[in-house]
Structures are given as C-alpha cells and as structure tokens.
Write a protein that binds this DNA or RNA. Structure first.
Length: 296
DNA sequence: ATTTCATCCTGGAGGC
DNA sequence: TGCCTCCAGGATGAAA
C-alpha cells in the first residue's frame, strides 16, 4: 500500500543510486504490467532507451517517475504490493523471484527491479514527459488525470473541493480530487482532525476544513521523515521497512485505546474500505467537533 | 455528470 | 498438518 510518503522515500533512494547512470538493457518478465501507447511495442521502446541517462527521479502523487535525457519516461504505479528494488550484487534470489516483473540493468552493472506479488502495479512507457510538469504527458499517455498534491494545496482550493455530499473519506481517497492519500493516511488525518470519516464533505465548517488540511500535511510530513509505513509489503529501494507504523494513531488500531481519550477504537467500513476511528473523538456533526472527550 | 460497486490478484489468517 | 474460505486494498471501468 505505497502512498505518497512511501513513494517519496522510494524516489529518494533511487535518486541516490541511479541518477546519471546509463541504461544497458531492460527485460520484461511479465508484459501485463506494461501500459501506455508502447504497451505492445515495449521491446522497441527499451531498445531505444539503451544508452540513455537517467536525468530525474521524481514523484507525482503515488506515481514514481524515472525520466531520461531523451524525454522518455517510466511512470510506475506500485499498486498494492509493488516494489522498486536495488538488490545488492549478492541478492540473486530477490532478483530472480517469481514475482519479479521487470529488470533494468545500467552500464555500471547496477540493477533495478520491479517486484509485485499481486500484479496490481503498472509501468507506463511515455516518450515525451517534462519532469517539471508531468501531468500533460501522463494524460496524453492515457493515465487518469490527478488532483492536486496535498502538500501544496491551499486552504482555499481545499475548501472548494468539499462541495459535495460524498463522505469526506471517499473524497480524500479519490485521486482525481486530491492525489496521494490512501487508506492509512486518510484514517490518520481524520483522526488527527477529529472528523468522522462518514461526514458529508459539504458539512465541514471552514474551521474543520482548514484543520483537516493542516493535519493531512502534518501526517504526511511526519510519515515521510519516518521512512513511510510498513504493514506487510512496503519496502524502500534498499529493501528497508518504514518506521511510521509505530506512530499510527488510528489505522489498524481497533480495540486499542485512543491516544487522546482512551476510548477503544472501532473498525467500520466506509467507501468500501476498512476504516478506523475513535467513536468518542471523531464526531458526526460540526457542533460536537470541539468536544474535548470528557463526555456528557 | 456523479457516485457506487465489482473486479483484478495472491498470501496470510482463521476455521475445522 | 492440511484443506477450505475469506479478506485486504489501489485503480479502473461498468452500472446505477
């Protein structure tokens, strides 16, 4: 479940190692993962990529972007279990795992592999992407249009996003509205902002909306610093786990005491997703939002 | 147009 | 020990 903080950390690791290196060859072991206009012509695409230097390694929402000097780019959507790994030379077993979908070799011998147990991950091949403005190329290549980055969204833009009766949780998970959050950080942000995930988005007061956006940014920044959250599958480019799991306040903590009020957290299903809340802190109406948790 | 819902996929957990 | 069923969950495309 790589979300924005996890992808940010993967990009960081890849940047340290593959930036400036030249591609030797790329082999695809599971063509199903290849997407975009060159889906059926990936051999040619990767032949053309040979000798190209990696110019930038960036992130857009949950997408990882490797761009090359020719303006060609790989856009990686990791899905649930996708990993981009730089296995050490002695890790042949990882390299040859039956879940390895793609292997890219660089001229200095470095290898970068895409491993994905559940095959939800996808790699888009694009010819003309500007890393400083990747959205037009991604859309032209057939990728879904993304909403703004949460970390650079203003309170004003965020407020206009909330003019719908959909549950606030569904809205935050909708990548076309705001792009980068997944189930973990949505639950964490709503807990931090004391807002019930089933609240219609348009029932939030201005104060609640501003508070929610502040908490989203705060949670994301802290998660990035902690290397992301590993529940089972997530690993960074070096194969390390994230350290944010120990800091989670809501996600997967059903039955455990709320860090604010001690009430056991509950699990419910909202927007088709497992949802974790404090039934006391996170209220369904704005007038209860200031409740300090000391009860009636 | 907007929003919901089934589908994809596999390892791990739980039941017996 | 082993077999079976169920579930997670991001993105997508069909259906309502």
């Amino acid at each position: 479940m790589p979300e924005l903080p996890e992808v940010e950390n993967i990009a960081l690791g890849l940047r340290e190692i593959v930036l400036g290196k030249r591609v030797a060859r790329v082999s695809v072991r599971e063509p199903v993962v290849i997407q975009g206009p060159y889906q059926r012509k990936w051999r040619r695409f990767f032949d053309d990529l040979s000798g190209q230097r990696v110019d930038r390694v960036t992130r857009r929402a949950k997408r990882l972007i490797l761009s090359f000097e020719s303006k060609a780019a790989l856009v990686v959507q990791l899905g649930m279990t996708g990993k981009m790994l730089l296995p050490a030379p002695d890790q042949r077993a990882t390299l040859l795992s039956k879940h390895t979908r793609m292997i890219a070799s660089f001229q200095d011998g470095t290898e970068l592999i895409f491993v994905d147990v559940r095959r939800f991950g996808r790699i888009w091949l694009l010819r003309d992407l500007d890393p400083d403005n990747p959205d037009p190329a991604m859309e032209a290549g057939g990728m879904t249009k993304l909403g703004p980055e949460p970390l650079s969204t203003s309170a004003k833009v965020f407020a206009t996003m909330l003019g719908t009766a959909r549950p606030i949780k569904a809205l935050l998970l909708d990548q076309t509205r705001i792009a980068g959050l997944g189930n973990i950080y949505v639950d964490e942000s709503l807990w931090a902002a004391r807002i019930h995930p089933a609240r219609p988005a348009n029932s939030l007061t201005h104060e609640e909306a501003a508070q929610l956006l502040r908490q989203i940014k705060s949670v994301l920044r802290r998660a990035i610093r902690a290397g992301g959250t590993t529940f089972s599958d997530y690993r960074n480019a070096y194969g390390d786990m994230g350290r944010f799991r120990a800091r989670l306040k809501a996600y997967q903590r059903q039955g455990q005491p709320c860090h604010r009020c001690g009430t056991p957290l509950e699990r419910l299903v909202i927007a088709g997703r497992g949802t974790h809340i404090c039934p006391r802190c996170q209220h369904r109406t704005p007038d209860m939002a200031q409740d300090t948790g000391r009860g009636e």
